[in-house]
Amino acid sequence: MLEAILQQRYYITAVLLFTIGFVTLFLHPNLLKKIIGLNLMDTAVFLFLAAMGYVEGGVAPMLEEGQEWTAYINPVPGGLVLTGIVVAVSTTALFLALTQRLYRRYHSLNLDEILILARSGEEKH
């Protein structure tokens, strides 16, 4: 069992990070912490994908003439994750902008309080 966990260490770490991010996203009332949790989930998925592409003893895919293709790692997850990281930043920026707008209206980062205020239909000024 311990050997299997050690063998699959990257996958297990990715699962743990994903769970931490998931629980934070659902349970923490603070909006900024929720966004951080979402980012943790993002990186967990990236870690899983990149670990899938790794080949024991493989090197980064800088191609050379006359080299067997098994000497490199799989380039497909690398391409996926590369674009994924940049897109994750832009979505984070969008969430942060929305959070700022919510704060301007409700003077709170706590989602529960925002929900109460929104439910009571309180219009400021």
Partner: peptide, 30 residues
Amino acid sequence: SVGVALCLAVIFTAVALSLPGFGETDVPAL
């Protein structure tokens, strides 16, 4: 939500342990 998270974690861990080994060359992804 805690229940869902725990279920997901257990399922994912089981899947991760039964995936082809990390770093092996005969994985379906390659």
